[in-house]
Design a protein around this nucleic acid. Structure first.
Lengths: 335, 335
DNA sequence: TTGTAGGCGTTATCAT
DNA sequence: ATGATAACGCCTACAA
């Protein structure tokens, strides 16, 4: 079965290779009639253009690279999956790479992608401190962990948290604890700001809305000990609600409350952040602030494809979070 | 900055493009001296071969496609991550695609990969019933959900479960419940067989080792109701241990036991299956049978690269699971 | 609007 | 062992 190429199509359709190529690339200057005929022959022959040859000539690979710290993290795996979908819709494919939060590996991966001639890169930078040196001319969009000086997209963590805390305030809570993320993490400090925003606003004229903060890593176990810390005090000093900076923290915190015999949501409301699938698998189901992961991915892709302008280098695009109500929140019990 | 190509290297090194190409491809017939000189120039110029041009001539893309039903599933995301690592070690990159358990989408994705000229495909087939029609000549290895007639790799589910159940038997348990997977799933029925193997063996000469089975989907909530079902009986009839076909089921089952006031592991031992990260995040940590995901991925990659023979079409390669002891198992209480 | 032809950066075949 | 050179399959000026 001799490979069918563009000339086979041309010959059978009675046109030149140029015309076939133009049909392939949706070039406007082709008669509808010819276009149809060529399309027919392509179908008939089962012709598929050779991407390598194509890419070599046109400098377009229809490939997008995505580099993330850890695919095992549900947030990132959903991000990749969403990006894949978005890209597929445009005839693009995704090359994934994992940096394991290792700056050197990250740089190497970016190099590979560059030499592969991908048309763009979606990058969630590793937490290793490092300066990103990127081949100019290769569109790149930083996601989630924003980097100053690069155009980036992320959830509006600050406002998202504010919304979540305000939800608790609206329910009547005043002693609202906050489990923060690691302090060297940019998203974490944004989330903290959101909490402080909400609390400051609430304490106008009121006395009780004082901040109650525990710092922790984003994982389950850290959330559990932070929860223990926040809850280990006399009943009337103990928070009636806790906002956690990640769903995993929130779930750990639920565990802590449970172990202390504090019923949820009767004696304690909990709100998480992220909206990972696991959040709806707990009992009771976790109320959480959901990040618009799909939108982030889709936007990143359309930007890379040049169908949308990139955000300013120093003004990242922030997408709104929304609250997803579960069963871990209710009005506070009277003291 | 005019792109540096193979002839620039050749010129500066004072050799022909042929020689440079041979150095690039580790062709044996090049003097060590020349090889060194060329390498030096390559370094100096920061030359990177153009993969498109390379692929066009050599018919090798150094690209591997991987198609899975759902990247959000921890098992698959770890699979992809492992494959990426393994591939990177050989200078290969990975294109991921999600089929969403949709046969048509799966076929489309495979078509895309084919026309991309990937050097091989790793496929976890969708559950949709369908016949796979694959372009001949493109190496493909089926993973996890084995398909008759295609060379495949998977965990040895049957033996894995047997090992887990035997672990419980060794601890002294006799009334061991089993939460099965959906009955139309091949891995699920393999796991069930493993349970029956172990129980049959154990009941030689003993009376009490009777099977106690609940069928359920693989998810958390299904595991919880299956657990409720198995545990909702008089103490002396109730199983002293439960083996769940997935970690998520096991975690749901832990929840059920907890709600019924049955302490783990004092009054009930639980063993899961899969070894997902979540298993070590529960309290107490889940004892589980760990699938050799990394090995599966690595093996699939080396097979595709032709560095290892593919398994027989009708005799898939089964890799051994191993038990990962957590804190959910102990000897049974006396009745 | 359509056809013609040159060349993209490598690899591989032939000589040398 | 090395060098010259013809493809590889397609896109894109340029010409018609």
């Amino acid at each position: 079965m001799p490979k069918v190429g563009i000339r086979d199509v041309a010959k059978l359709a009675g046109v030149s290779t140029g015309t076939v190529s133009r049909v392939l690339n949706d070039h406007p200057s082709v008669t509808d009639e010819l276009r149809a005929r060529v399309r027919g022959v392509i179908e008939e022959l089962g012709y598929m253009p050779d991407p390598s040859a194509r890419s070599m000539r046109s400098k377009v690979s229809r490939l997008i690279g995505i580099v993330i710290p850890d695919l095992t993290n549900p947030f990132f795996s959903e991000l990749v999956q969403s990006a894949e979908q978005a890209a597929a819709g445009h005839g693009y494919n995704i090359i994934v790479m994992t940096s394991f939060d290792h700056a050197a590996k990250e740089a190497d991966r970016i190099g590979q992608l560059t030499s592969r001639k991908v048309d763009g890169i979606i990058l969630v930078p590793s937490n290793d401190f490092h300066t990103l040196k990127l081949p100019k001319g290769l569109p790149i969009v930083i996601v989630d962990r924003l980097l100053p000086g690069y155009s980036g997209i992320a959830s509006d963590h600050r406002n998202g948290v504010r919304i979540g805390v305000e939800h608790l305030l609206k329910l009547g809570h005043r002693r609202i604890g906050f489990i923060s993320g690691p302090k060297d993490s940019v998203p974490a400090s944004d989330r903290l700001k959101g909490y402080l925003d909400a609390m400051k606003f609430a304490s106008r004229g009121e006395q009780n809305a004082l901040p109650l903060i525990a710092e922790a890593a984003f994982d389950y176990e850290s959330g559990r000990s932070a929860g223990n810390y926040l809850l280990a005090r006399a009943r009337h000093e103990r928070p009636t609600a806790i906002f956690a900076s990640s769903d995993q923290q929130a779930i750990g915190c639920m565990r802590a409350a449970h172990d202390l015999g504090i019923p949820i949501p009767a004696a304690l409301s909990i709100v998480g952040f992220d909206g990972i699938p696991l959040a709806s698998m707990t009992t009771p189901r976790l109320t959480t602030v959901k990040q618009p992961i799909r939108e982030i991915a889709a936007t990143a892709v359309t930007i890379l494809l040049g169908k949308q302008d990139a955000p300013d280098l120093d003004k990242p695009l922030l997408l709104a979070c929304e609250i997803s109500e579960g069963e871990t929140t209710s009005s506070p019990q009277p003291d």
